[in-house]
């Protein structure tokens, strides 16, 4: 029996490993967008050099893969010759193997791809990787109360709200909740068509 295995490729996007030389520049470019940074991270928004991003990618690619996985998201372009274009990243981190739990993080740096379903599809793909390849039991994430678009996307991918750390963030002169979401393997709908031939 032969089985077509689930590649990390969908209709809109695919996941690939980053190339330090090619992609460090991109990560640095995206981080110049303050809104992108403030949707992504609770650390103070700040700027790092391309060199620093390159070092981070190299370090990540170099180490023994035990508790985190980092992918670049590429989307098919609209023009006639349909090329793959990097638009963001998605990664699993802090994996607790004995408990089968991991944190997921995702960011779409290219603004023209916001709200087009690319992030949701990339999330579905990393969930397939988490549940079907790593055999995890659940995947967790946190999202800021003001990131309404992300919350909707996560719900579409199957995540449920599990609570919130009240008023944890302070930004733009007011406080916001940190929302926790999670998805269990049993709640996850595998929409990949495994074809046996």
């Amino acid at each position: 029996m032969m089985m077509t295995t689930a590649g990390l490729q969908g209709e809109l996007v695919r996941l690939v490993a980053p190339e330090p030389d090619r992609d460090a520049e991109l990560l640095a470019k995206w981080s110049r967008d303050a809104e992108y940074l403030r949707l992504l991270d609770s650390d103070p928004a700040r700027q790092w050099s391309v060199k620093k991003y390159k070092e981070w990618i190299e370090k990540d690619l170099d180490k023994e893969r035990t508790d985190d996985f980092f992918f670049l998201i590429q989307a098919l372009t609209d023009d006639a010759d349909k090329k793959w274009r990097p638009i963001g990243f998605v990664g699993l981190g802090g994996i607790r193997w004995t408990h089968g739990d991991a944190w997921v993080g995702i960011g779409i740096g290219e603004r023209e791809y916001w709200g087009k379903g690319c992030g949701t599809e990339a999330m579905r793909m990393i969930l397939r990787f988490a549940f079907d390849e790593l055999n995890l039991h659940r995947v967790s994430l946190t999202v800021f109360e003001y990131n309404v678009r992300a919350i909707r996307s996560y719900e579409k991918a199957g995540f449920k709200v599990e609570g919130k750390l009240r008023q944890l963030m302070r930004r733009d002169g007011r406080r916001w909740d940190l929302i926790f979401m999670g998805i269990l393997k049993e709640d996850w709908r595998n929409d990949y068509d495994y074809t046996c031939t």
């Binding site: 039991h137 750390l165 999670g182």
Partner: peptide
Amino acid sequence: EVRQREALHRYGRRWDLVY
């Protein structure tokens, strides 16, 4: 504030992690 469902696997079953 938060209950991460079945985040822990111990003593032969799953348990929530509570914040």
